[in-house]
Amino acid sequence: MRTEYLGRVDESAAPVPLPLAADAVRAGFPSPADDYVETELDLVAHLVQHPSATFFVRAKGDSMESDGIYDGDLLIVDRSLEPRDGDVLIIAVDGELTCKRLGRIGHRPYLLPGNPNYQPIPLENVECHVWGVVTHNVHALRCGVGR
């Protein structure tokens, strides 16, 4: 999966609070909802822990689909976090940006795709530079929205 750099968080931008319903929405059997708003929620404040170290990229390709990352998704990336096994990274491998999960095969580090049609990428003896850890994924559920 390739990525397209979109930019950093604008720390000077005014918050954009959106309404947050008082009750959680059930994903199972529908129940009546309350007709009031409990509070307002600023999505940047909710999704971005380190604004000065956070940037956005757009995912391209299908190699991370079983991880829930689809072509065109907006990824929120924090470059201040130390990568750990299991993290999804934005990483330059031999000069090309990619999005993969950090893992191990045996005792060796690999970048693991979320699609069986792609091979793991060994990290030994390759030039690589971690751009950051993907902390959130934003994707549309309605076709053609937000891409």
Rank of each mutant, 00 (worst) to 15 (best):
S31C: 00
L81E: 06
S63C: 10
M64F: 06
L89K: 04
K60H: 15
G68Q: 12
P51I: 09
V126R: 14
K60D: 07
T54E: 04
L141F: 08
M64Y: 12
P51E: 01
E40K: 01
R79W: 01
S66W: 14
V138Q: 09
F55H: 12
L123D: 09
D42S: 06
Y36N: 10
E127S: 15
A140Y: 04
K100Y: 06
S66K: 14
P32Q: 10
A33H: 08
Q119Y: 07
G72T: 03
L41C: 07
A59M: 07
G103L: 03
L75D: 08
D71Y: 06
N115S: 11
P51A: 09
P116T: 11
L18P: 00
L47I: 06
A14K: 12
Y36V: 11
L141N: 02
D23W: 06
V130T: 13
R147Y: 07
D78T: 05
V57H: 05
E40C: 02
P122D: 05
E65L: 08
G28E: 12
A53L: 02
V88H: 02
V138H: 09
Q49P: 02
P32K: 10
E38Y: 00
L102F: 08
R58I: 05
S12H: 14
H139P: 05
V93E: 04
E40R: 09
K60P: 01
R8Q: 15
V93L: 09
G28M: 13
M64D: 11
L18Q: 11
V57P: 04
V25T: 12
D35C: 05
I105W: 00
E4K: 15
L47D: 04
T3H: 03
G68P: 13
D34A: 14
L74R: 08
A22D: 12
Q49A: 15
V9A: 09
V44S: 04
A13M: 14
W131G: 01
A33S: 14
E4M: 05
P19A: 11
D73V: 08
E124V: 11
V134P: 05
V134F: 01
D62P: 00
P30T: 08
L43N: 00
V126L: 13
I121Y: 00
L6T: 06
A21S: 14
R79T: 03
G72P: 01
A13P: 03
H46G: 02
V77N: 03
N115A: 10
I69Q: 04
G132K: 08
G68S: 08
E11A: 13
A13Q: 14
V133H: 13
L47A: 13
P30I: 01
P120G: 13
E65M: 09
C143P: 04
K100M: 05
E4T: 14
